[in-house]
Amino acid sequence: MRGERGKQVLITAVVLFDLLFLALPTVIILLASFTSGSIVRFPPEGFSLRWYVELVSGGAFLDPFGRSLLVATLATLFAVPAGTLAALALARWRFRTAGLIRLWLLLPFTIPLVVAGLGMMALFGELRILGSLWPVGLACCIINLPFMLWAVSAAVNHLDPELENAAANLGAPPLHRFVTVTIPAVMPGIVTGGLLMFILAFNEFLVSLMLTDARTVTLPVQIYTSIRAVITPDLAAVSAVYVLVALLAVWLLDRLVGLDLFLRAR
């Protein structure tokens, strides 16, 4: 093919640039977190784990870390049943208003996050539930709910409805069918969606910023409010924890459903 080399060179060049561009903040966070100095400098002042030791031995980040874990767990617990049931209903039942229902369920993606956060802040304030953590989990569930629906919908669409019909033919009542046939069949979707919900809620910043106060601050908000003009390695060590969690999530996603899933033509 004519000029095929030129194309290869161009694509490879852009891809290599992209790889560097994507990895740079992550790599630099990891590097900075291992410094032994008390500010981040280049070249680094030496290798140590002191900032990690400081992290686990108390300090300002331990409680927010626990809260973020709780918020992410709550958001996942809210979203998995609600999203799974809704996705199954949309796939298996005929609604005359199906278009409207889908539009409604996609609203969390079309309303800007800053507006969604303010609205829920106003509402939760009136209900006098601001200041607890579960409304933050609820909010994180709501703003990311379409993810859960998308993940399960994709799995339902690859499921043969004859499986459920066969179970029905053999006399399985509805709940038996649901628990022993439908749920196992869409499990990859539930796992993908649940994982995404957890990671997104664990990282959620803007809505947490609005819904938390000094006593309920979550980890991303705590990192944000700790950012100073001078770059300190303690923040790099907390951020490195996020990198670790992200790595774990990528590994899990690959193990459980396979990353190739996201390349499939739709």
């Binding site: 994507l22 990895a23 740079l24 903040p25 992550t26 630099i28 966070i29 990671i199 664990f202 990282n203 959620e204 910043f205 991303p220 990192i223 944000y224 950012i227 923040l235 790099a236 951020s239 996020y242 990198v243 969690v245 992200a246 790595l247 999530a249 990528v250 996603l253 990353l259």
Partner: peptide, 14 residues
């Protein structure tokens, strides 16, 4: 996917 799973605050800090 690795940066995809990192939030804005962490990446901006990087």
């Amino acid at each position: 996917f690795l940066p995809f799973f990192l939030g804005q605050v962490v990446r901006a800090y990087g």
